[in-house]
C-alpha cells in the first residue's frame, strides 16, 4: 500500500507504459511477444538463449536500419535481398574456403555494395526513376549476376574466420555465458546507426526530403547527395547482413529471398511512414526484433506453416493500421 500518494496520482508504471506506447507501439508489442514466448518457454530469457535470439535477429535488424534511411527519404530499396544473396555467393566463390582470403574478400564485397548504392541513388535522383522501379531492376540484375557467376550451383565455401561474424561465440563471458560475435557487431552497428540517424545532419536531411522534397531542396539540402547516401547506407547494411547470414547458415542460393520485404515490414512496424518523412531508428530496430520474435513465437506455438504466414500478414496489417489510426486521431486532436 502506498500511503504517500493521493488517490488521483497516476502510478509510475502507467506513466512509463504510456511513454513507451507513445514513442512507438512496437516496443509494447515486442514486450508482449517476449513475455508470451517466455511463458511458453521460460528458458528463453536466460542470457545465453536470449543472446542467441539476438544473434539470429541481427541480420534483419541491420537490414531494417539501412532500409530506414531510404524509407524516410521517400523511397524503397527492393534490392537488399538479392544483394545479400550476391554477397554470400560471391564471398564463397572469391574466398574459396581459404581463411587468408577473408579480409580482401570482405573489402571487395563492400566495394560492390557501395557501387550498388551509388547506382540506385543516382538513377533515382538524376533520372527521376521511382526508387521502386530502380531497385526492382537492381534486384533482378543482382539475382541474375549471382546466378551467372555461379552458374546456378554455388561454388567455393566461406572460410571459418568469415563465418565467425555470424556464427562464432566468445565462451565463458561472466554473467552472459556464451556471447555471439554477431551480437557485438549488432550493438556496435546499432549505436552507429542511431548516431547517424538522430545525431548527424544526414538523418534530418533524409527525413526532410521524405516529408517534402521541394521544400528540402529550397532550404538548401543537396537532395541527390542525401538520397545517394541513403541508398549507400542501405546497400552497405545489406552486405553486412549477407556476411552475417552467410556466417550463420552457410552458402545457399536463396539466402536473401524476401529479406527486402521483411526489412520494409520491420521499418513499418517501427512506425515509419511508408511515403517518407517519419521514422525512428530504435523503433525500426525494435520492429525487426518484433518480426523475428513473432516468427519464433509461431515456431513455439507449433502452428502449421500456412497459419504462420497468415498470422504474420495479419499482424503486419494490424500494426500499420494501428499506426495510421493513431495518426488520424492525433490529427483530429490538433484540430486538423
Amino acid at each position: 500500500m502506498s500511503d504517500t500518494r493521493t488517490a488521483t496520482q497516476v502510478p509510475a508504471w502507467r506513466v512509463a507504459l504510456a511513454a513507451v506506447g507513445k514513442s512507438a507501439p512496437v516496443f509494447l508489442v515486442l514486450l508482449i511477444l517476449i513475455a508470451w514466448i517466455t511463458y511458453l518457454n521460460p528458458r528463453f530469457i536466460e542470457p545465453s538463449f536470449f543472446l542467441n535470439f539476438l544473434r539470429r535477429s541481427a541480420p534483419l535488424m541491420i537490414l531494417a536500419a539501412g532500409q530506414l534511411f531510404v524509407v524516410v527519404s521517400g523511397g524503397f530499396d527492393l534490392s537488399q535481398g538479392s544483394l545479400v544473396t550476391l554477397t554470400v555467393l560471391a564471398g564463397a566463390l572469391l574466398a574459396f574456403g581459404d581463411p587468408a582470403n577473408t579480409w580482401w574478400v570482405i573489402l571487395v564485397l563492400y566495394g560492390i555494395g557501395l557501387l550498388v548504392g551509388v547506382f540506385n541513388g543516382a538513377v533515382t535522383s538524376y533520372l527521376r526513376v521511382p526508387s521502386f522501379i530502380t531497385t526492382l531492376g537492381m534486384l533482378l540484375t543482382l539475382k541474375g549476376l549471382a546466378l551467372l557467376i555461379t552458374g546456378g550451383a554455388p561454388r567455393g565455401a566461406l572460410p571459418p574466420n568469415f563465418r565467425a561474424f555470424g556464427r562464432a561465440f566468445i565462451e565463458d563471458v561472466p554473467l552472459l555465458g556464451r556471447l555471439p560475435w554477431a551480437v557485438i557487431v549488432l550493438f556496435v552497428l546499432s549505436a552507429l546507426f542511431v548516431y547517424l540517424f538522430h545525431y548527424t545532419v544526414l538523418g534530418k536531411q533524409a527525413l526532410a526530403i521524405g516529408d517534402n522534397q521541394r521544400a528540402a531542396a529550397l532550404a538548401g539540402i543537396h537532395v541527390p547527395r542525401v538520397r545517394i547516401t541513403a541508398f549507400v547506407m542501405s546497400s552497405l547494411s545489406a552486405v553486412t547482413a549477407g556476411i552475417m547470414l552467410g556466417g550463420f547458415s552457410g552458402v545457399s542460393i536463396n539466402v536473401g529471398d524476401g529479406l527486402e520485404l521483411e526489412a520494409i515490414s520491420a521499418v513499418v512496424l517501427g512506425g515509419a511512414a511508408l511515403l517518407g518523412g517519419r521514422g525512428n531508428m530504435p523503433a525500426a530496430l525494435a520492429g525487426a526484433l518484433t518480426l523475428q520474435a513473432l516468427f519464433t513465437l509461431l515456431n513455439f506455438l507449433g502452428l502449421p506453416s500456412p497459419i504462420r504466414v497468415t498470422v504474420q500478414g495479419a499482424i503486419i496489417i494490424g500494426a500499420v493500421g494501428y499506426a495510421a489510426w493513431r495518426a488520424v486521431r492525433a490529427g483530429q486532436e490538433r484540430g486538423a
Binding site: N41, R56, P59, F248, S249, S252, N299, F300, S305
Partner: peptide, 19 residues
C-alpha cells in the same frame, strides 16, 4: 516444419526445437 529450402530458416527452426 517447412523450411522453404532456406538454410537460415532451417537453423532457426532447429534451434527453437532444441530449446
Amino acid at each position: 516444419e517447412f523450411t522453404e529450402g532456406s538454410t537460415a530458416n532451417t537453423k532457426s527452426i532447429v534451434e527453437d526445437y532444441l530449446q
